[in-house]
Simulated scan of single mutants.
Amino acid sequence: MKFEEIEALMRRNESLSEQYILPENFIIVRLDGKGFTKLTKEKLSLEKPFDQKFSQIMIDTTKYLFNVGFKVIYGYTQSDEISLLIHKEDNTFNRKIRKINSVLAGEASAFFSLKFQEICVFDCRTIAIPNQEMLLDYFCWRQEDSHRNSLSAHCYWTLRKNGFNAKQTTEKVEKLSQSDKNELLFQYGINYNSLPLWQKRGVGIINKEMKKEGLNPITKEPVAYLRNELLVENELPTRESYRTFLKEIFEKI
């Protein structure tokens, strides 16, 4: 078979296997750390259950992904997870899911690895969202997941620091309800409601157009201009208040 014939066959097979996000759909991308449990326990020296440096690098990675070629509107990160909302009119890579996943996973993995000087890998999935209500549902879902994971993590490491082994701790925490977990922490002198909000609710990053003032280099007169800036929100509201917070962002797009 000639080269041209082989190439045509392979290109056809590639195109037939492609999946796309359809027009007029928002794009949600969620990245998760691959094998981060082992990474954080064995290779990285981190505070348990939450480490300020690790959290800051997750925020920095999220901010970095705003500037790799996609029109990102909102970013959210909790634990080792990042969610990005990409504008429904974004046509990068013709909205090919394979390209979106591979590029964003690669960019996040490379940036994060450089920060920690360890090989760190993210996986990535792309989700089509047809309307604003589902956008709100998605981010509220991820925040509730953050709250549940945070509560369990604090219980787990509190017990580990007080003499329980890994097996005993896991079995004990898995049987507890949400209220029981709060009570367990209280017994060890920890008021979960008083813990930093970023540990419980995650962190939001907003791409916001800001009015700035500068100086005309020719006339030397003050001028006003608009510039996009990334604003980090470490104290997100929760539940319906979070939904209202998001709605105000999404209604502008």
Rank of each mutant, 00 (worst) to 15 (best):
T238K: 07
S150D: 08
L184V: 06
I249A: 03
E183C: 04
I59Q: 11
Y192K: 07
E229L: 03
K208A: 12
G33E: 09
D90T: 02
V103F: 12
G35P: 08
K41E: 12
R148K: 14
F54M: 13
N25M: 15
S109F: 00
Y225I: 00
V29S: 11
V72P: 04
F26L: 08
M1Q: 08
N228S: 06
L230R: 01
L236H: 01
K115C: 01
K38G: 12
A8I: 10
V103I: 12
D60L: 14
K200T: 03
Q199M: 06
I253W: 08
L185T: 08
V203L: 01
I253D: 10
E209Y: 05
M58W: 11
T238C: 04
K200H: 03
L84H: 00
E18I: 09
G204F: 03
E251Y: 06
S152W: 10
I206R: 07
A105V: 00
F139R: 06
N91Y: 04
I57M: 13
F66W: 12
E5A: 12
L185M: 13
T40R: 08
D145R: 05
Q187N: 15
T37C: 10
L136H: 06
P130L: 09
K48M: 11
K48V: 12
E221K: 15
F54Q: 09
A128V: 07
N67L: 14
G106K: 01
I205W: 01
N234E: 13
N182S: 06
Q178W: 13
G33Q: 10
A153D: 10
S179L: 09
S177A: 00
E133D: 13
T61H: 06
K212W: 02
E221I: 07
I21D: 07
V223E: 09
R148G: 10
K175H: 06
L184Q: 06
A105H: 00
K96G: 04
S177V: 02
F186L: 15
E144F: 11
R239L: 09
K53F: 14
W198F: 07
K181N: 05
I100Y: 04
I206E: 13
A128Q: 08
F93G: 00
F36P: 14
L236R: 02
E240F: 05
A8W: 05
E81P: 02
K252Q: 14
L136N: 07
E144A: 14
M58Q: 11
L236W: 01
F111R: 00
Y76L: 09
I253S: 09
L85G: 03
S83E: 02
C120D: 00
Y188A: 06
K252C: 05
K63S: 15
L84D: 00
